Every structure is written in structure tokens, then in C-alpha cells.
Simulated scan of single mutants.
Amino acid sequence: MNIKVVVVDDSALMRKILSNMINDCQGMEVVDVARNGMEAMKVIERAQPDLVTLDVEMPMMNGIETLKAIKDNHRFPVIMMSSKKNNKITIEALELGAEDFIEKPISIKENWDTFKNDLEARIRVHFPEEKAVRSNEKKNKLLPEQLLDKKKSLEAIAIGASTGGPKALVHVIQSISEHLDIPVFIVQHMPEGFTASFAQRLDTLTSVNVVEAQENMRIKPKMVYLAPGGKHMIVKNNYIKLNEDPKIHGVRPAVDYLFESVAEAYGENTLGIILTGMGNDGANGCQAIKQAGGYILSQDKGTSIVYGMPRVVYERGLSDQVGSLYQIADIIKEMTR
């Protein structure tokens, strides 16, 4: 059975482009389109889609208002269609429950294949063929002895996330204790131009400082460093280093880059955390942290928007502990106070 998609966009050209791209993907079909939020709500009731692509800027009822109405009445995933100028609104949409967003390229004609492949992947990831939930995960107590033993010696926390990450990170960041005395490093797969707004938003939600990392920024305790979109981030000699080396797993920044450098810098005194996201970025980095004697915590399937990155870590035997998003937040709170 095909994945049924409704496309919502005030641009007739964009509706046509998205419809053609999606209909060209095996197992997907656009069952209807809408020009604005008000029309979208009627179309959704009639078409009963499996997923909606939603433009951020629309007349009569904008993307945020439409998203709220959808989430109040439906459970299907929503992917926002955004641009750099709408980065703050996009971050708000992710906090309100949008599962993902795609940045519209300046020239779709020149980036047709890349944009189409990205769109297809971000739709398909919400409909995995395997429906079975793993039931053999270890039911660990919140702070097992192995983790408690690291509390006094902990020197750094590294977090990696992708699809669904912004909303998860909001929850996690809010749990950090005001007594944090170590640095926290984050890689969230996000395009250039969006991470600055995201860092600013996170900074307003916690008692510690959150910044978008910059080249040669000296690493300080009580700070949270978010990797900028479009650049890999590593730590070296107590400084942040950024580069534009080739993408890993199709992404830049990559979690693996950060985790491997953190493992080298902080060794056994590292807590690595893998949150929701598609793909396998972070698994090699987790292995590096494990080999250095650090501790790996991965998000469970039940609270992951996409159980991809944490699943690979778990299935490779790299996760010391599997926890829900809420348990992970509680663990971070305990480990940082």
C-alpha cells in the first residue's frame, strides 16, 4: 500500500514540484494538495493522509497555526518546508511537534536529484517495513553502579541527534543542572543557517550557557557547545576546531567526528548519548568512546521519532544503557548536579 501524502504550499509551482517528486517515488503518492492552512484542514479530513508536507509561510493560516491544528487532531508525521530566512519559525515548529524539516534549495532545478532524494528519505524513514518492537532491552535502574562511579570523574558529555532531535534536545537541555561544571558538546544534523537560532533558543531554556560553536573557541566548564550547520566540530587541546572536510554518512556536522575527538580528549571520563535520528552516524564514535572506557547511553525505540541511530548503537552492542527520553533527561540531571 502506498504512503499517502498531502502537500500544503501557497505556491502552485512548489505544489507541482513536490507532487511530481513524491509521485515519482516508489510506494508513495500525493492524494491531495492545499494552498493554505484552512484549506489543508479540510483536505486532511477528506484524504486521511499518512504524512503532510507543510510550508512555513502561507496566507490566512500560516505553517505554525496549521501545525498546531494538525497536532491537536491527528497523529501522522508532518515535515516542514522551510528556508534560511524562516529558521526561527522552523525551530519553533520542531518544538511544537513537527517531525522534521527540509530546507528548500535556492535553485531546485540545479539541485533536483539531491532535493528529491532527501525528500524521499525523510518521508520513507517514518514508515519502516519492520513494525516489531524489540522487547529484549535490558531494564536497567536509572543510575547503575558503572555510571555512578563516573559521576565524580566525569569531564565531558557528548550528544548526537538527527531527525526528531531538536524537540528531544529541548527536553534534555532543560534537565541540565545549574551546577554543571563540565562542558557539553552537541551535534544535531541541521543545515547551515539554522543552528545559530537553535542555540539561541536552547540558551533561553536552561540556566547554563548554550552557544553555537566557533573556530578556536576555548572550551570552558558550564558551557554547552552546539556544532554549526555545515561544519564538522572536534575538540582538541581544550579548544573547539571546525572544518569543512567531506561529509560523513551524507552529513556535516557528523556525530562520529565529534565523538571520536571527545574520546581522545577525555577518555574514560566521557558520557556519550545518542538520541533519535535516521542513519548510523554516531556508531563509530560510540565505539571510540567505549574503547576509551567511557559510557554510552542510547534512546529507546518508544520515545524516538526515528529509531535509527540509537538502534545501530544498540544492535552493535555499544550501548551501556538504553533509556527513554525522560529517563535520559533524569540521568543528565543527576550526573550534572
Rank of each mutant, 00 (worst) to 15 (best):
D149I: 07
E29H: 04
E178I: 04
R311K: 15
L271N: 09
N136V: 11
I91Y: 01
A329L: 07
L51Q: 11
S107M: 12
A69F: 03
N140I: 07
Q327V: 06
E57W: 02
M233G: 09
F115N: 11
P77Q: 13
R15G: 08
G285H: 08
S324P: 04
E92P: 01
K150H: 03
H171G: 00
K138T: 08
R124Q: 13
A263I: 13
F115A: 08
F127H: 10
P77W: 07
F194A: 10
V172F: 13
K222H: 15
L318V: 10
V187Y: 00
G267S: 04
L143C: 04
V210H: 06
L67T: 02
A199P: 01
V5G: 06
P183K: 02
K139G: 02
N284C: 06
M41F: 03
R122S: 01
I296S: 03
V31W: 06
A132I: 15
N209E: 13
G294Y: 03
F259M: 08
R75T: 15
I64H: 05
A283K: 12
M28A: 12
M14Q: 13
N62E: 05
M80C: 05
K139V: 14
L258E: 01
N243K: 07
I176Y: 09
R201M: 08
M38R: 14
E95C: 07
G294E: 03
P183Y: 00
I328E: 02
Y307G: 10
G294T: 11
A265S: 15
K152Q: 12
M28Y: 09
G285Q: 07
L119Y: 12
L67C: 06
N284I: 11
K247T: 12
F259V: 00
T276P: 02
N111S: 14
I289S: 10
M61C: 14
E57S: 11
K152L: 07
A329K: 08
F101E: 08
I173F: 14
I274R: 10
G293E: 07
M80T: 06
W112G: 00
I173Q: 03
I331L: 09
G37P: 03
K109V: 14
V208D: 04
K71E: 06
G293Y: 01
N269W: 01
N36K: 02
V78Q: 03
Y307S: 11
Q48N: 13
A292V: 12
N62P: 06
V5F: 04
M14K: 11
I91G: 01
S261K: 04
G282M: 07
N237V: 05
G63L: 09
T53C: 12
C25E: 14
E110D: 15
F198M: 08
V211I: 14
I91K: 03
K68G: 00
V7R: 08
S107A: 10
K236D: 14
I289P: 11
A288E: 11
F101V: 06
F185A: 06
A254T: 14
N23K: 04
G285D: 08
